[in-house]
Design a protein around this nucleic acid. Structure first.
Lengths: 198, 198
DNA sequence: GCCCGATTTGAGCGATCACTCAAGCGTGAT
DNA sequence: ATCACGCTTGAGTGATCGCTCAAATCGGGC
């Protein structure tokens, strides 16, 4: 290499991720990105090829972060079902720290994207499917640990959990009473724990 | 009136509603709207003041339609809890007819909007709150009908129901196996019916 | 110290954005 | 038939969109 990169790809991607997450794909302009990336349009294009390319890179980063978080949760040992319930309750306890950063970016992408941005939409769907698979694996572990009754279907439970988590995060994005959010998370967590054989 | 309106406001609003619902606020251009409304930019501006004004009118229409649907559901007589459960199951049975028309437009708006479109965001939040109130009224009716246990909180149950419905509609938007969607709706409906005193 | 080549720069590209307004035209009143 | 009114028209506004590329800039190899 003849010259060190004057910008840090990770830092730039994080900045782009946060901005895209907050404003969405269509409402974010290259001018906005220039600002938070501290890069001129030529550099952005050289590094990420296009606005769409940058979005895809940011989305991939987001996905990996979430997937790794879920894996860390599962690798914690102890009760898989308990880990999922804790995760729900933890999310319910969060205060609204940064605006526009609560709902899942994959879901936001799914809803924001049209037929013109088919590539982005397909990628978001793929990542969501991978997340589903991760959750299925956790329910499989729960079954192995004897936390599920005989006839329980891990895939079905996983889809329910993912839907619940999506709803919880959208409710968080909506704002409103923090205590109501906590109660919602508690209700969902209790539903989850009810599947345990008694 | 010196001249009959050459366009039908209801038809135009429906067309705008469908397009906005499908593509979202930012991704819909005035040129797109000209096409589906069969109106030139001057007429659109004269009738709806601006793109934002048109969106607000379309959103109001969407809200009234949904609120009235919910009221009709509640006015059907019989079990309020059963009506809600039926509504969930009915939604789970739907096939993906028109693309991009499954998720709730209020939720899509909430996620799509930024600080620049604060008016639209506030309106969407207001409508969502009104929907919550409608659902609370149904759970109040359920309590009056003896379908709820002593300590049950209608507001808390309503928030859970609304979150579940949101999640179900997003899952429908995501696509995938129709049978999985049906099972998800069934799971949610069964959770709802579990609150009945036994 | 000098040059080479990779990288950044930023003015500016054509296209499209939301939107305007002077002109044209259809309609009901007379 | 004619007029006057008011809605519709659509070319065109300035601004901004995503993006390009020739020129400036900087670091490493010799």
């Amino acid at each position: 290499m003849t010259r060190a990169r004057p910008y840090d790809r990770d830092i730039a991607l994080d900045a782009a991720l946060n901005l895209f997450w907050q404003k969405g794909y269509h409402a974010t302009s290259l001018k906005d990105l220039e600002g938070v990336l501290c890069m001129k349009p030529g550099s952005i294009y050289a590094a990420f090829k296009s606005k769409e390319g940058l979005y895809l890179s940011a989305l991939e980063r987001y996905f990996h972060r979430n997937r790794d978080g879920l894996r860390a949760l599962a690798a914690r040992g102890g009760s898989p079902l308990g880990a999922l319930a804790d995760h729900l309750r933890g999310f319910g306890r969060q205060q609204a720290e940064v605006s526009g950063h609560r709902a899942c970016m994959l879901v936001k992408t799914l809803l924001d994207v049209t037929e013109q941005d088919a590539v982005i939409g397909a990628r978001a769907r793929g990542y969501l499917d991978e997340m589903t698979a991760e959750i299925v694996a956790i329910f499989d572990a729960a079954r192995a640990a004897g936390e599920l009754p005989e006839g329980a279907d891990p895939a079905r439970l996983a889809r329910r959990y993912q839907a619940d988590m999506t709803a919880l995060r959208i409710e968080a994005h909506r704002g409103g009473d923090p205590e109501a959010l906590r109660l919602l998370a508690e209700d969902i967590a209790q539903s989850l724990e009810q599947v345990r054989p008694h």
